[in-house]
Simulated scan of single mutants.
Amino acid sequence: MTLEPQAVPGAGLLPQEPRARLLRCTGTREETANVKTFMLEPASGDSFGWLPGQYLTLNLDMPRGPVSRCYTISSIPGQGLEITVKALDGGPVSNWLHANLGPGDVVQAHGPLGRFTPRARGEEAPAEPPRYLFLAAGSGITPLASITRALLENPAPVDAVLLYSVHGVADVIFHRELRAIPGTSGIRVELVLSTGSIPTSGVPRAPGRLDREMLLELVPDVARREVFACGPPDYLAAVRRMLDAAAFDPLLLHVESFEISAHTPGLVPPRCAGTAMFEVEFVRSGRRIQCPADTFVLDAALAAGVPVASSCTLGMCGSCKSSLLAGSVEMNHAGGIRPREIAAGKILICCSKPTGDLVIDA
């Protein structure tokens, strides 16, 4: 998916290159019992633009040390800078934000980041409105809320369907806003509840999870739409199966999930006999470690107790971006680094395996 510079609806701002920023909290808003929106502004007083669906990486000094987490910008410029965070069971960062971040507090952030956003439209109107299908589960609604808000601000016609899966009515984030979307907007919202009664929004149906039959009932022309899906890994895996069964073109599917991958960072897998071992020097940390050729540099660093910033571990967020001063790696990222950054010697250590001895500015 190609991103082109475009004016952000309601602000006249072009999306900015990602960089470090200090953000001040100006207020909070309760969305559900465990979801809160934080209103932010640049502490410097300047402003910046972003593309609908992009995110920020917050770098926080926690009691147990520095941590980084990715949070979608749920708003669009002109409506203020907002992130919407769900307090997860056992989630140290999300619960800390809910309990501690309030008006006047300042946090470090990096961004905007991400490519989970529709293409910029040309000046000439297309022969027919673009067709989108937005699939969200739980807090996966946040980037799609931003995209939906941007479409509502754009006068150009659009044909979009949002299928939002949650456990019950009390778990619907942005409930009032979603229900208020007019039918004349070209955006149709359908709530899919696994339990409880369906509110007066969308097509009445019995509670249940989204499956292929429901998908085709609600969106018969799914194969003709560009799909943006965000939610937990299990949900996204189910979405892929549904779309495969519907003869959907996988090139029209864009997915995003910030859940930590199944592997546990910091645990280096047993080394197979004959696997090469390389030395990795972290200049600023003053540490040298050994990293097998089949192991991600981040995993080896955390296992050795080297303090390095990281978040998604999927090559998406850019938190672990570092300058490679010497050596070479095999890197398989998921959009968290730009080609010109790679050309300038940057790497993401979470998805890079050494092909020789390395010297890293970290």
Rank of each mutant, 00 (worst) to 15 (best):
residue 299 D to W: 01
residue 4 E to S: 05
residue 288 R to V: 12
residue 299 D to A: 04
residue 7 A to M: 10
residue 180 A to M: 13
residue 21 R to P: 03
residue 38 F to K: 10
residue 9 P to A: 06
residue 229 A to D: 04
residue 48 F to D: 00
residue 313 T to H: 12
residue 288 R to I: 10
residue 153 E to S: 13
residue 150 A to R: 03
residue 169 V to G: 08
residue 327 G to S: 05
residue 342 I to H: 08
residue 336 G to D: 12
residue 281 E to W: 12
residue 154 N to G: 03
residue 67 V to D: 02
residue 123 E to G: 13
residue 88 L to E: 15
residue 343 A to N: 07
residue 274 G to I: 00
residue 24 R to S: 04
residue 310 S to W: 15
residue 122 G to V: 04
residue 107 V to Q: 07
residue 67 V to E: 13
residue 252 L to H: 14
residue 354 P to T: 01
residue 241 R to E: 15
residue 3 L to Q: 12
residue 42 P to I: 14
residue 195 T to V: 15
residue 309 A to E: 09
residue 23 L to Q: 02
residue 137 A to D: 02
residue 38 F to S: 11
residue 10 G to Y: 06
residue 72 T to A: 15
residue 211 D to K: 02
residue 20 A to Q: 03
residue 241 R to T: 15
residue 54 Q to H: 13
residue 217 E to S: 06
residue 262 A to L: 12
residue 193 L to E: 05
residue 292 P to S: 14
residue 52 P to T: 06
residue 299 D to K: 01
residue 259 E to V: 15
residue 134 F to R: 12
residue 93 V to M: 01
residue 105 D to P: 00
residue 319 S to R: 10
residue 342 I to N: 02
residue 58 L to M: 06
residue 54 Q to W: 09
residue 245 A to D: 12
residue 155 P to F: 11
residue 120 A to E: 05
residue 82 E to P: 00
residue 92 P to G: 04
residue 89 D to A: 14
residue 24 R to A: 05
residue 215 L to W: 02
residue 318 G to K: 01
residue 145 A to I: 08
residue 34 N to M: 09
residue 333 H to P: 01
residue 278 F to L: 02
residue 296 F to Q: 08
residue 97 L to H: 02
residue 314 L to I: 07
residue 75 S to V: 09
residue 162 L to Q: 14
residue 240 R to H: 14
residue 330 E to A: 10
residue 79 Q to T: 01
residue 239 V to D: 04
residue 343 A to C: 05
residue 31 E to D: 11
residue 310 S to N: 15
residue 166 V to L: 11
residue 197 S to N: 11
residue 87 A to E: 12
residue 112 P to V: 11
residue 170 A to R: 04
residue 349 I to K: 05
residue 100 N to Y: 11
residue 186 G to A: 10
residue 348 L to A: 08
residue 15 P to L: 01
residue 195 T to I: 15
residue 201 S to K: 12
residue 80 G to N: 00
residue 140 G to C: 13
residue 338 R to I: 01
residue 212 R to G: 05
residue 198 I to R: 14
residue 157 P to F: 05
residue 68 S to P: 11
residue 106 V to T: 05
residue 334 A to E: 14
residue 58 L to S: 00
residue 73 I to K: 02
residue 93 V to W: 02
residue 46 D to F: 06
residue 32 T to E: 10
residue 174 F to A: 13
residue 142 T to K: 04
residue 289 I to A: 03
residue 25 C to W: 14
residue 84 T to W: 03
residue 174 F to D: 12
residue 210 L to K: 11
residue 247 A to M: 12
residue 52 P to I: 04
residue 126 P to F: 08
residue 155 P to G: 03
residue 41 E to F: 09
residue 252 L to K: 15
residue 234 D to C: 08
residue 142 T to N: 01
residue 315 G to F: 00
residue 193 L to W: 04
residue 22 L to A: 13
residue 178 L to I: 03
residue 279 E to P: 00
residue 19 R to Y: 11
residue 321 K to C: 00
residue 336 G to Y: 04
residue 230 C to T: 14
residue 296 F to D: 02
residue 232 P to R: 06
residue 360 I to L: 07
residue 110 H to T: 04
residue 270 P to F: 02
residue 229 A to T: 10
residue 156 A to S: 13
residue 228 F to M: 07
residue 196 G to I: 06
residue 354 P to V: 01
residue 109 A to E: 06
residue 347 I to M: 09
